[in-house]
Structure formats: C-alpha cells, structure tokens
Design a protein around this nucleic acid. Structure first.
Lengths: 187, 187
DNA sequence: TCCAAATGGGACATTCCCGTTCCAGAACGG
DNA sequence: CCGTTCTGGAACGGGAATGTCCCATTTGGA
C-alpha cells in the first residue's frame, strides 16, 4: 500500500470523526484533524461533495462487510445478532456520520443502500420470527431500525463517557433482545 | 395571545423541523418554511446563535413539561414509562433537533440540562430496579439513553414512513421493556 | 544517491450566508 | 376610520468557506 493510499485512508478516517460530530464542519477542520494540508485534501477529494460521497461509500462498505463477516445467516438468531453487534459497534463513527449527514437523509438512493447493507440483519430477524426465537408481533422494519439505533446510541453514550465502550455490545444485546424488565414480569 | 407571540411560535416550530433535518440549514430556508420574511425572523431572533438558544430552551422545556405531565413517579414503573412514552413521542422534532445540533453536542451545560430534563425518567428507572420490576444488571444511565434513543428512532422511522406514528409508543414500549425475543426464551 | 511523486503553504477569486438598514405596505386595535 | 404596530422586500457590507493555482520543499522508492 503506497503513500497515496495511506493518505487517502487517513483523510477518510479523520473526516468521518470530525463530520460525525458536526456535519457542517469546515474542510480546514477536517484537514487539520488529519494532520494534512488543505491543499492535499482537495487533491484527493476535489470538492466537498465528492468527499461526502466517498465517505458514504466507505461507511456503507464497512457496515456491509462487518455484517457479512459475522455470518448472520448461521446458527441461532440471537447468537448471530450477538456476533453482528460485536463487529458493528466499533464502526460507531461511520454509523454516526451516516446518521448525521443531511446528504444521506435527503437522498432516496442512499437511504435505500443503507437498508440494503442491513438486509442480512433483516433476514436474520425474519428467520428468528419464523423459528419462534423472536416475537412475531413486531414489524421487521421496526426491529431493524431499533437494533441499529441501539448500536448507535451505545456508541454515542460511550463517546460521552456514560458507559464503557467494552460494555456496549452486552448492553445492546441485553436491552434489545430481553428488554429492561425483569424476565419474570414478561407476560 | 397577540400577533407577535403567534409569529414567534410559528418561527420556532418551523425552525425545529428544518434544523432537525439539516442543522446547517440557512436562515432563509427557515424563514421560507415558516412562511415569513427573513427580515421578520431576524426581528425575533437577531442572530442565528440566539435562534438556536431559543430552540434549545423551547425543546428542553417541552420535554421536561411532557415528562412531568405524565407523572413518572406514580404507580407501577412500566405504566409510568408508558405514559411518558405517549407524551414524549409527539415531541420527535424537538428531540431530533437536540440530537442533531452540534451546539448541544459540544456544550457541557446543555448536555447537563438535557439529562436534568430526563432526571424524572432516571428516577423512575431506579425505582423500577429497586422494586424488582426492572432488571438491575443494567446501568441506569444506559437505560435512560437507550429509552430516549428508542423514542427518537421511532420518530425517525415513522418520519421515513417505515412504521405508523400511531404505533410508535407501543413498539417502543414492547421493544425496550420486553425485548424482541419471545418471552419463553428470556432466561 | 537521485529523481519522480507527493506534500504544504500562500495567495486569489468566487460564492454563500449573515446581520443591518431603510422604506413602503398590510394588519390589527381602539 | 385612523394610527400604531408589524411585516416583507430590496439592497449592502462583512466574513467565512470553497475551489484553484503556483512554487518551494519533503518524502520515498529505484
């Protein structure tokens, strides 16, 4: 991997962190956070628009890859979701960026691609509802969003120092799968 | 209530909708969405900073008032949370705005005030953990964030048309309280 | 070591948004 | 019905961010 590739990677990583906390942050701020001159940033991403697009692509790729690597179609559904959670939580900045970026919010095709990336999770949830391990009185679309939202919340909460990041996967799984009530009280 | 009060209310309502979807939206966009001239907007809120502050105050007040009106300190905790959910879900735009606004994210005191507004919820959760109706192996801070996050997610999901807004409170409560697994599988 | 590639800084024009001012017209209340 | 208040449009200066160019310097590989 040559120098250009490393610089590009550095820029993408810095940009996702900065822009996830302020989607309107200036390109100067991004370049500075990456330890790179603003000129160099423009050399790799000529316009802000192109930088955003590249970040979205990168984030979607990472999420899709992380989910795939967890093999959500294998084994008991709850175990599968546990594996997905473990691999996706570290992608917090990318999730946070996708969620904060207005470009994503207002572009139909990008929303569609987000849910395409989550499709294996949706299938796992359907599988769970079919085999009786997940309750079937909740819309799959809702469960997908609630699950993804919980992961995002966990990242944000850890980022604010209210929980430890290492606890995040367990908290997400316990809360989403079993709920916050005591088991006995669940009718 | 005179004309100025109504105009101010119109502006606040329009601004929270526009800025919740794009925290960097221009004041022209806000004024246009409110059906008001940009001059008038500046007459009520001289600077963008002051508009943001007023929006934050308004959002925090609404959340605190909605929670208080649900009397989260009375009756069974799960019932109390149900009442809070019912009253808070309609505040989606305000929650979304608070969550998206970088000004809030980066200001210690505003974060503190957000959690102060949620304090009655935190107390209800503590009460539930103490009386055995809620599981005690989850940090209260996490439960508060997960709960608020679920309400926000439900609003966003309804806004995208993936669920009906009228179903949101039930979905939030079922998911957060009981989880998405079938009751029998909860150990 | 040497050369090509990559980088960083400075300078510049452009564009967009903000905040202000002025003035004419509309709306509301007495 | 009249006058006070509120509103909307136009115009302007200032400032910040963007995108572009040029050139000196550094870096890393052959």
């Amino acid at each position: 991997m040559g120098r250009p590739d490393r610089t590009r990677r550095t820029l993408l990583d810095a940009a996702v962190v900065v822009l996830s906390k302020d989607s309107a942050a200036s390109l100067s701020a991004v370049a500075e956070h990456a330890g790179v001159g603003r000129t160099t940033l423009h050399r790799y991403f000529p316009t802000r628009e192109l930088l955003i697009r590249a970040l979205v692509e990168d984030a979607l790729d990472r999420v899709a890859e992380a989910i795939a690597s967890a093999h959500p179609d294998e084994g008991p559904v709850v175990d599968a979701l546990q594996r997905v959670t473990d691999t996706v939580v570290p992608l917090g900045p990318s999730l946070s960026f996708l969620h904060a970026e207005p470009e994503v919010y207002n572009a139909r095709d990008l929303i569609r691609r987000w849910y395409e990336a989550l499709e294996p999770v949706a299938e796992a949830i359907e599988r769970g509802q079919a085999d009786g391990s997940l309750r079937a009185d909740l819309p799959v679309k809702w469960v997908v969003d609630a699950y993804a939202g919980a992961i995002l919340t966990a990242w944000d909460t850890a980022d604010e120092g209210r929980i430890w990041l290492q606890d995040a996967p367990r908290l997400v799984m316990t809360t989403i799968v079993h709920g916050v009530a005591t088991p006995q009280d669940t009718p």
